[in-house]
Amino acid sequence: MRIPCPYCGSRDASEFSYSGDATLTRPAPDSTDAMFDYVYLRDNPVGVHQEHWYHTAGCHAWVKVTRNVSTHEVIDAVLAHDEAES
């Protein structure tokens, strides 16, 4: 599996660390229910999944990867920082 890092280009997935579901947004700390949901519950979908990978052995950027978890096909990769800014 190769991930097209926006800085470094196509790199082997073993250069990256995986951090899971990228659709979650950290809630305000005062809501216990929302925090429980954020920390523990996952949609865990079949098919297309958005996820965060950290380029540990590369540019140290957080990359938001869109990947098909049923086929391991990587569909898209953007910098998480850019998306957070926009």
Partner: peptide
């Protein structure tokens, strides 16, 4: 392997 998967097969690393 360390990432979400429903593929019943893994990768070479």
């Amino acid at each position: 392997d360390g990432y979400n998967s429903y593929a019943q097969r893994g990768n070479l690393p």
